[in-house]
Nucleic acid binder design. Structure first.
Lengths: 243, 243
DNA sequence: ATCGTGGACTGAGGCAGATCAGTGCCAGTG
DNA sequence: CACTGGCACTGATCTGCCTCAGTCCACGAT
């Protein structure tokens, strides 16, 4: 697969119109392809001189561990997402990265990344753009945990996931497959797994959305969007913002 | 005040060793100085073609409104912080920005910012660094709201604020002044104002920290750090990371 | 002087969601 | 085959935090 067709290039291209030269610089950035088994952390909190990765297939989650032994999942990454940018920029990882499924990813060496930035500066801007979008997702996540109740939060979460997957061609607005267990949802949404289970049942009984056997099916998009107060503008936009 | 001495330049310099030329490009970036009254929003959700700002003095908060009328404060900004980067990159603001006190800030036009990035690319990398640090703070905030109880969360919040203020010379590790009302703390921490009040009293009665009349005084740093599970590495580091 | 306003602070009562302690259903695996 | 471990799911109980409904300042405006 060339960078020209990689989901990552496509994503950056949505922010900054990329020249042929920039596209091939992106292509060279994709270093060695690596494979990771589900459940075994790719990166640990505190590790130094980590590489970053561009996710080709599979799902991963980024989380932080607390002293009490609980964890908070900050975000899930899906194919086309960039992993561990902060770990590279700060030389030491401030969070763990765990593959949720088997994962294929291209390693990006810190030195290559910084050199690419200096030689093709517009790519630095493009990556800044992508990082800002990630931050917007974390912010939305924060708002959800802080001010939405469990049902709204879960609805919002499932809608966001659907929108993201649709953007990379891994599902439709109404249906997608999702390898996350209820335990992981709980760790992501700041709930207990028990409560996630009950909330999913309620959403199902309300005829809004079903999440069973790894498949999410949205039955009533409008009502779900209203319940969740979901506004997808932070995920998407029309055409490159920088010509 | 020249950019050479502005807190913002100092902050970026902590990430990327800046040349004289880069420093003066930064200086030129500081556009018109503007002043804002407390309480009147500088930026609204949904506004397009906003400028960004570099905060010179005063405090502001960034928050999102929910349909229910509640709000979640995402972060507070203090002098030296960059405001509204996302609003500029995405052309439309996804959050509100409200001055907490009277505020002095330099306006940064979107076009100037992008032009600066293309002419002095290392500044794009530096801003990427700063944005990543902001994201790290939001992530820490997310973890707190998701997995820390009200007392730990409040302790963590006060410690983080102290560390940030110390970095820009506005307080010591043990004492600083803080213009935030308990209502704002509540909106930031995902609690009710009533509960914030009780938690602050408990922290005071435990001899850990006092927050009264706009002054925060930490009485027992060690126990507070332990309670909050506070690790300040995400805020600070030694020397520029990019020479 | 008094009124109004905004913030700190308090008590009582209710509820969302946590915790505890399970059951049942697979898919491995030795 | 029985045994194990992971996940979905459930009922009972408990609790952290919210909501409501106030009081009591300190202040600036009239």
């Amino acid at each position: 697969m060339t960078a020209l067709h990689s989901p990552f290039s496509r994503k950056l291209g949505a922010f900054v119109a990329l020249s042929g030269e920039e596209l091939s610089a992106l292509e060279r950035l994709h270093g060695r392809r690596k494979s990771f088994a589900a459940g075994r952390d790719m990166v640990h909190q505190g590790q130094v001189n980590q590489s970053a990765y561009i996710l080709a297939s599979g799902w991963v989650c980024s989380y932080k561990l607390l002293s009490g032994g609980t964890r908070q999942i900050v975000d899930f990454q899906i194919p086309g997402d960039f992993l561990g940018l902060r770990s590279v920029l700060f030389r030491t990882a401030d969070h763990n990265i765990e593959p949720v499924t088997r994962v294929e990813a291209s390693e990006v060496l810190a030195s290559d990344l910084l050199e690419t930035f200096s030689r093709t500066p517009r790519l630095a801007t493009a990556v800044l753009w992508a990082a800002s979008r990630d931050e917007a997702m974390v912010v939305e996540h924060l708002v959800g945990i802080g001010r939405r109740d469990a049902k709204e939060r879960t609805a919002h979460f499932l809608l966001e996931l659907g929108a993201r997957l649709k953007l990379v061609g891994l599902g439709t607005a109404l249906e997608y497959s999702c390898p996350l267990s209820q335990y992981m949802l709980a760790d992501a949404m700041g709930l207990s797994a028990v409560h996630v289970n009950r909330v999913l049942r309620e959403l199902r009984e309300d005829g809004l959305v079903t999440f069973q056997q790894g498949e999410v099916t949205i039955h009533d998009l409008d009502r779900l969007v209203t319940l969740a107060d979901f506004d997808k503008t932070y995920l998407d936009h029309d055409g490159p913002l920088l010509k």
